[in-house]
Structure formats: C-alpha cells, structure tokens
Nucleic acid binder design. Sequence first.
DNA 1: AGCGTCACCCGGACGC
DNA 2: TGCGTCCGGGTGACGC
Length: 275
Amino acid sequence: MPELPEVETICRHLRDGTKDSPPLAGQQIVGVRLGWPRHIVEPSPASLRRRIRGQAVRDVNRRGKFILLSLERDTLIVHLMMSGDLFLAPAGIPRSPHDHTIFRLASGWQLRFRDPRKFGRVFLVADPETVLKRLGPEPLSAGFQVGKLGLILNRHKRALKPLLLDQAAIAGLGNIYADEALHRARLHPLRGSQTLKPSEIRALWKGIRSALRDGLRHNGASIDWVYRGGSFQNHFRVYGQEGQPCPVCGTTIVRSVIGQRSTFTCPHCQPWGKN
DNA sequence: AGCGTCACCCGGACGC
DNA sequence: TGCGTCCGGGTGACGC
C-alpha cells in the first residue's frame, strides 16, 4: 500500500516524466471521466467537472501520503489509500476496469487514477490546507529534528506503533515503514511513547528516516497486485517476514496484531522487557 | 481530553 | 466451482 516513499516516487514520475511519458506540469485538463463518483470527496462530482475544466497543472507535490496537483485556480488532491495508482497514459491505451477516474489532457495524454479497492479519495479545493491541516510534520524534512520527535513522543502516552501510524502525529508512515523503523531502532512496537531514553529517541528518529530513505532509494515497494516498479520489498527486514530469520541476528521473525494491524518484529532485537 | 477498539468501505487471495 | 474469511488506511462512533 502506498506510503510516503511510494507516493513520493509516483509524484516524481508525474513531475519529471518517465521514459514513456511526459512531465505533467503545463498540461491542461480538458475533461474528466468519473467512473466511480464516490472517489470524489469534495466538491460534488458535477461541480468538480465544471471547475476543473481548462485548468493547467502547475506543479506536483506530496504532503504525507497525499498527492497535490497545483492547478491554476485550485488544488487537485489525491489519496491513493491502499490500492491506488496515479499515472499518465496515452488516450489510445484502453483503460483497465479499475481506471475509474480519468483526467483528459489537451495533449492527448490522460492522467488516470487506477484503484481496484475503490478506497482512494479525490478533492478539488481552493485551499489545500482544508484537507491537510490535521497532518503532523514531514519526517524527511529538515525541520524534523530529534528534539521534534521527542516532543511528539512525550506529548502522547501511547504505544509506539499506533503513534507512528497516526498521520496527525507524523505524516507518511504506514504499516510497512512503521515496522521497519521500529526494527532499525530496536524498539518493541508496544513500548510506551513516554518511556524512551534519549538514546532510544535518537534511534527511532534514525530508524524512521533511514527506512523511508531506503524505501525512496528503491523507488518504494511493490507489493500485492499493485506494481509501480519499486524494489524495496526485496529489502524488508521484518515486514511480511514471519518465519524468516532476522537479517541482524538470525532469530525467527514473528507476527502479532497491534492496534488491529499486522506487526512484524524480531523477538531478540526488539525485546518486550520492562519499560 | 485522549486513548483504544471496532465497524465501515472494497475486491483479490486463499482455504476448504 | 463456489463460498466464506482475511486484509488494510483513514475516519467516525463509542466507551473508558
């Protein structure tokens, strides 16, 4: 499921173009196909269709797991949720049954939102902050220093894993990168956020950043049936590795459920002792 | 107030 | 083959 590195990779492909498709910036939207209107959170589908016509894409950015397409007057915001993909395709390529929302461009290319599970969300708003205001800081930004993570950890009294997954605390982590970050930090996912020593806060900070950076370096992870060309799935240390040896110590990775989420840990590297 | 838990939305994968 | 169950990101309802 697309998390920060996967969403960032998709944004880069849209922004810079790929060997098969042009950059999105400068392209004018001339029409929309709304094959699953429930994707549209706001405004109404009819209003979106009317408002978006004629607007050109100025820029492509990411905030948390949201893709932001800055248009001339509005911002088109897409959340891929767990099975979404956003990409350019020539109009001549037949759409797949899951290409629900399609933005037709003046160039003849199409911006397609493919989403087999239909959980994705689309917003067209004048002010992106109305959608993004609840998000916590960007974990890869220069402003996200160790002290900032320490404040977040101490502001809450929660188990680490649900806290890492809370987009209002830190934006962009999902199940994969939360587990990978905790393993790198050698911290158990049930540790209380207020019980960490300074050295452990630093380890978690480094774990979060290095897991995300490694994900980005491999263009994200390609899992389930959604393939975007990433290869980070070949470098998971714990996620999905139940029964496999820990790459650090060889102990068998175990799966548990924490906060209704599958959670993978190394019992040796991430002991659940006192604290 | 803040936290945990649960249901909800979907369809592909998988087990029987 | 066909049915039932599981999974998961974010949100909102609910209870403590």
